[in-house]
């Protein structure tokens, strides 16, 4: 599973996207967030961290499926 990264999450990870190893059993958005937080503790210090699935905000209990576009959404600051 590939995760798109933007803003401060891109800087924390150091890349535009991140590949979750297939050996990881991540089925939901909540599990993905927990795994990412463990890999990159700086993510836990953000004011908020949302996940978008197919360019829609996703709830923690939402199930992830292959082929979906998944992105990390740090606190927005447009305008």
């Amino acid at each position: 599973m590939e995760i798109l990264l933007f803003g401060i999450t891109r800087e924390i990870v150091g890349r535009n996207s991140l590949e979750v190893p297939s050996k990881e059993t991540i089925q939901t958005v909540g599990q993905l967030k927990a795994w990412l937080g463990a890999q990159y503790p700086a993510l836990n210090k953000l004011s908020s961290l949302a996940v978008a699935v197919d360019s829609e905000y996703a709830h923690d209990h939402q199930t992830l499926s292959p082929g979906q576009e998944v992105a990390l959404i740090p606190p927005v600051s447009g305008g």
Binding site: Y57, I73, V76, S77, G78
Partner: peptide, 9 residues
């Protein structure tokens, strides 16, 4: 827009 649109400054 400032609350929800995924744009970063």
């Amino acid at each position: 827009l400032k609350k929800t649109v995924p744009i970063w400054k």
